[in-house]
Design a protein around this nucleic acid. Structure first.
Length: 289
DNA sequence: ATCCTATCCTGGCTGC
DNA sequence: TGCAGCCAGGATAGGA
């Protein structure tokens, strides 16, 4: 599913092809794709706008617009499970069955297509209304090991649901959380406030390393969903150490990878590399509440 | 504060 | 072979 590395790849490929161009209009084929705006208002709001910036925040893509040199709001999108962004030659009669919104540019359409219809688009003058509750960017300088350690200490949730919570940290999804937890040798069910300082440092480094490596390989594709705007699959799926590898040997220790369910999500761990730390002794000794 | 469940959707898979 | 039913999966809302 598109997580931070996939959205980053999409944004990097689209940026040079979109910045500076003018939007001529839009056609909305599945109105529920639009969040809090009618198809008419969406189309009217986009018409004549110039694209001044294309960037990413968490798993959202953000297209900043201008009109006559003045800021004219933001076209923001979330791909959720199966959304794609594609830049295709104008061919209004050749629309695919899964196209939900087509933004008309000179000679081309920027197509938001989405098999499962979970993806959403916003057009808003107040970017903060959409992105305001997001936690920090894991690749930004503000995301330090000390910040992470303090954040883990400050709550009492299971590690994996916390890392999936976009208000805590923006951009991780099911795949990269599983990969980062394995790289940090931490169990997804561990209570976050029981992670020690060394564990927090390992997790911080693992999150950054996994995300950077996935961006380098243009994201992960293991089903029919994620493709780059150029139509290519990502290549990071070949580097997976746990995700989707249930029953196969751990690449670190050889033990079979296990699949469990954590917070309603399929979760993959190496039961030998990732133990619920402490065991009986440490647990009873530290159970203050 | 945190957890749990339902909701939104469809294609692919399982089992009969 | 055909079909019904189940399931994944990100985010959010509402209830416990």
């Amino acid at each position: 599913m598109p997580e931070l590395p996939e959205v980053e790849t999409i944004v990097r490929q689209l940026r040079p092809r979109l910045v500076g161009r003018t939007i001529l209009g839009a056609s909305v084929l599945w109105p529920r794709t639009l969040a809090g705006i009618s198809a008419r208002a969406f189309t009217t709001g986009l018409r004549g706008a110039r694209i001044r910036e294309v960037r990413r925040r968490g798993k959202f893509f953000v297209i900043a617009l201008a009109n006559g040199g003045r800021p004219a709001g933001h076209l923001v999108g979330h791909l959720r499970m199966s959304g794609r962004l594609v830049l295709a030659p104008r061919a209004s009669e050749a629309r695919s069955t899964h196209d939900r919104v087509r933004v008309k540019l000179d000679g081309q359409d920027l197509i938001f297509s989405d098999v499962r219809k979970f993806g959403r688009l916003w057009l808003t003058p107040r970017l903060e209304r959409v992105l305001g509750s997001l936690g920090p960017e894991p690749l930004a300088p503000q995301f330090t090991a000390a910040w992470l350690a303090a954040g883990l200490r400050a709550r009492a949730r299971q590690l994996k649901p916390l890392l999936l919570d976009q208000r805590f940290l923006a951009g991780l999804g099911n795949i990269y959380v599983d990969e980062a937890l394995h790289a940090a040798r931490l169990h997804p069910l561990m209570r976050c406030d029981r992670v020690d300082a060394a564990g927090a440092r390992r997790l911080h480094a693992a999150i950054r390393r996994v995300l950077a490596a996935a961006i380098r390989r243009e994201g992960s594709s293991f089903d029919a969903f994620y493709r780059t705007p150029e139509g290519q699959p990502g290549r990071y799926q070949h580097q997976f150490r746990v995700y989707g590898r249930a029953g196969r040997p751990c690449r670190s220790c050889g033990a079979p990878i296990a699949r469990l369910v954590v917070g309603q999500r399929g979760t993959h761990i190496c039961p030998r590399c990732q133990r619920l730390s402490g065991g009986r002794r440490a647990r009873s000794a530290s159970s203050g509440r």
